[in-house]
């Protein structure tokens, strides 16, 4: 499978960054874009799903969080609220279903995770899929290191329902890898959002980790990014489905 690697270094607003994923997805569905990896970084933001926009006090909570330095932006994939910061790496995989038949939700997660698993292995960090109690945006397809969430993942399928083979439309899977810094402020921001918006969840900082915390030493964003980029360009981890 030939996948174009888009090393996206352009600065955009957090909403514009998410919009680009959606634009690539729509373009892939029309046949205008082929299979693509997009590697990118975002500014500080709280990324909510369409579900959160229905919370009773969503708008006032968004205004308040924006004032606190956490603009609230909306993505169209699944899960729940996830913080983005400049100390995280973002990876998106866009596949036209006309070119690549994705038969299972799990298969797409495995393809998305394969390069991240490979990256983390080069640092000696072993990860697998799993849920982490107390982690924000929790789900079965977190990447988990020593019981802590180190990356979040989500999907969006168009042209036919998820998990059902189709020859039309496209799929998007994206991941956020926590590379540097502490997770206290991002976790607090998520909790503040839900408290103000009228949601129930409360999350714990200790459920989430970063590469730096796992390694107990400083890592450089650019170095991590370049390593991941070289793994993507090598392209030999894409077929790791079933081998995680």
């Amino acid at each position: 499978m030939q996948i174009v690697v888009y090393n996206d270094i352009e600065q955009r607003s957090p909403q514009a960054q998410l919009n680009l994923d959606e634009q690539l997805l729509q373009a892939a569905a029309k046949g205008d874009v082929g299979p693509t990896w997009r590697l990118w970084q975002d500014g500080q933001a709280l990324v909510v799903t369409r579900k959160e926009t229905h919370l009773p006090h969503f708008h006032s909570a968004s205004v308040s969080l924006h004032r606190q330095g956490w603009p609230v932006v909306v993505r169209r994939s699944g899960g729940s609220t996830l913080p983005h910061t400049a100390e995280m790496l973002q990876l998106s995989l866009i596949l036209p279903r006309g070119l690549i038949v994705v038969e299972r939700i799990a298969q797409l997660y495995a393809w998305l995770a394969a390069p991240l698993v490979g990256l983390l292995e080069t640092y000696g960090i072993q990860v697998g899929f799993g849920e982490v109690k107390g982690a924000f945006c929790d789900g079965s397809y977190n990447l988990v290191a020593s019981g802590h969430k180190i990356a979040g993942t989500a999907q969006r399928w168009i042209g036919g329902l998820a998990g059902v083979p189709s020859r039309q439309g496209a799929v998007l899977a994206h991941a956020t890898l926590f590379v540097k810094g502490q997770m206290r402020a991002p976790t607090q921001a998520v909790n503040t959002f839900y408290a103000l918006a009228g949601g129930q969840p409360h999350y714990e900082e200790r459920a989430v980790t970063t590469m730096e915390t796992m390694l107990q030493k400083e890592v450089q964003m650019e170095e991590v990014r370049q390593k991941l980029l070289s793994i993507l360009e090598r392209g030999d981890l894409v077929d790791a489905y079933g081998n995680l």
Binding site: T49, R50, K51, R76, S77, G78, I105, Y109, G139, S140, Y141, A154, Q155, R156, W157, I158, G159, G160, L161, A162, G163, G169
Partner: peptide
């Protein structure tokens, strides 16, 4: 045309 979305614990899909 897409009329809405269905979100499961694992993914979001458009419904037509």
């Amino acid at each position: 045309e897409a009329i809405g979305t269905v979100e499961s614990v694992k993914s979001v899909s458009d419904v037509y």
